[in-house]
Nucleic acid binder design. Structure first.
Lengths: 341, 341
DNA sequence: GGAGCTTGCCGGAACGTTCCGGCATCGCAT
DNA sequence: ATGCGATGCCGGAACGTTCCGGCAAGCTCC
């Protein structure tokens, strides 16, 4: 069997091997202090040769920083590949800044002394109803939220926001352009900034066109079954509806099912679109038009802002904007047009 | 503005407040050493009152353990909610053992001194082609893999495996039971244990029934489009095929699309099932029969094994088994039966 | 040629915890 | 009384790093 503990090489080992003091080694490797270039190179070489790996616990203790950031995702995230993409984007960017990302349990409560385990926190789509969020905002470390937090009290140190009003408007304009006159919105429940923006925008858009966007509330992470039921209800109470915009990721196929069951042709008779893109939309039949929030890039942006704040490169209370893209697919072909291909 | 640094309470502060030494405080809080019950309670109370939070960097330095485990997911995982569920299961269980989970970047290469940042590693569905895996197996910390690693060299300290042969057999038996006589398998590319088991099982099952299970290779994390193309190809080359088992998560809707496009009725004319359950299957039209690998429980099991190994409760080289469940849905109703409901 | 500056390096303290050995004190049996 | 083990607590060292003050040696400049 291999050695259980291949004895770790410390700074002192390198120092001895190089015939200098540990301070010099530290300075040489860190690029700090005053060290002759020749010495620096020599020390670097020896460290490399010995396979020196700095002990991160010691470093963290001394520097009073943990070298890690926490990532909190909505409790309901587990069904959405959207958040997986976002998480990996964040990990990638954090790594570039030398930071680890520790995944926080959605339940959140039982975790220990958060402040001593992470230097900062990424809180994605914070919902007012999420009991873990206040604790996170108050953990004593800088917090960057993905989307704003609408709850009371502690202001996060930063936020990266999407222009949800603009994206829903674009979606509504798009289905209108494809012939829809009575669009409906399956709006997410809960008090997230996203949900609030969508509801407000639907009302505003309706007002500006002299029509009203029918609203139906579905769970934050609605399933296809939720969307199907909501769509059936919607069409039952108002058969004139000719487009269903489905807010949550992954639920749009349910709207397609409802359409089929009610004898409507999705994409022609009844346009269907989703406010969040994801694998379920691309794989649906027909594929569903959606707003691509570019989750990986979103994750990167959040991590980047947190890195910048931690490094003092960005002021606290910085707000940055993240851009989206409209992915047009056959589910919004419209009656007057031939389906592509 | 709030104080930037609400001065951290150390062991020494508690000791002073309690009128004892720091050793006693440490012993009292850890439950170690010999401390009078009365003292222990008093110290606990004071620590609580002062809001004492142990500094994890110091603790880790002293204990020579990091208090964290790393989690590596396949590079292609970002599109699959399956891995998100698995990850959260692992986080939950790790937290019960007092461990943080740090998410490793799929690319993996650029990471620093892994061994000093984590006490152990979870490597899920390790593919031979994944260049990050050998480095992880050789990082000098215990590794638990989810599914076996088929590559050469370093043996992981533990593994949690699924009986993929049994689950695919169950799926094949199920479609046969529903009338299918010429099932086909959309098998994943790549050299993972999962892919290997599926191929082997398909061959064995075919042999035992005197028929041959047609094979078509699709990417490890195939999209619906991949599955659609593969299904078309399959049916073109052999129109007698009456069931398509789609290995990768999220791809089965493509098989449904292909069926529709070729004038077959999915669930009746052509049975469709998936070897991995996920939101895409549940939301498809019709919903797709699948093997539920219970990813959250799987993640828990992996984390639990690693915790046990780290705590010395499980021997190195332990292998544990994880159970699956067959989720029967309308996509495999079969010709002879009425679709449910 | 001495004052004053810069350069290159070093020693030691500190970060906050855990853990080991040691020292009183006390009770109990001899 | 004396010995002795158990109990309760304490002091100090150690973990490996960073960072600050300091000290020689060499340089410049009048």
């Amino acid at each position: 069997m291999r050695r259980v503990t291949p004895p770790p090489v410390t700074l002192l080992d390198v120092a001895r091997a190089a015939g200098v003091s540990k301070s010099t080694v530290s300075d040489a490797l860190q690029g700090s202090g005053r060290v002759a270039e020749a010495t620096r190179d020599r020390v670097r070489g020896i460290a490399e040769e010995l396979g020196y790996r700095p002990n991160s616990a010691a470093r963290r203790l001394r520097r009073a920083s943990t070298g890690a950031i926490g990532l909190h995702l909505p409790q309901t995230a587990t069904r959405l590949d959207y958040y997986m993409n976002l998480a990996f984007g964040a990990v990638e960017r954090a790594q570039e800044g030398g930071l680890d990302v520790v995944l926080l349990a959605p339940a959140g409560a039982a975790s220990g002394p958060l402040a001593s385990r992470v230097d900062g926190l990424l809180v994605i789509d914070p919902e007012v109803g999420d009991s873990a969020v206040p604790g996170l905002l108050d953990a004593g470390v800088p917090v960057v939220t993905g989307e704003r937090y609408l709850g009371p009290s502690p202001t996060p140190a930063g936020a990266v926001v999407c222009d949800n009003a603009a994206s829903l408007t674009a979606l509504l304009d798009h289905v209108r352009d494809r012939g829809a006159r009575r669009p409906a919105l399956l709006a997410p429940a809960g008090a997230s900034a996203w949900a609030a923006a969508l509801r407000g925008t639907a009302a505003a858009w309706g007002a500006s066109y002299g029509t009203e966007v029918a609203l139906r509330t579905v769970p934050f992470a609605a399933t296809a079954a939720d969307a199907e039921a909501a769509t059936r209800g919607l069409l039952a109470s108002d058969p004139g509806i000719d487009a269903v915009l489905c807010a949550p990721d992954g639920a749009a196929p349910g709207a397609l099912r409802a359409a089929a069951a009610l004898g409507r042709t999705a994409g022609v008779d009844l346009l269907v679109a989703s406010c969040v893109d994801g694998v379920a939309n691309r794989g649906a039949n027909p594929p569903v038009t959606a707003v691509d929030l570019r989750p990986a890039a979103y994750g990167r942006a959040c991590a980047e802002l947190l890195c910048d704040i931690l490094a003092g490169r960005a002021a606290p209370d910085t707000v940055r904007h993240h851009t989206w893209a409209l992915e047009t697919r056959p589910s919004t072909t419209g009656a007057g047009r031939r389906p592509p291909h």
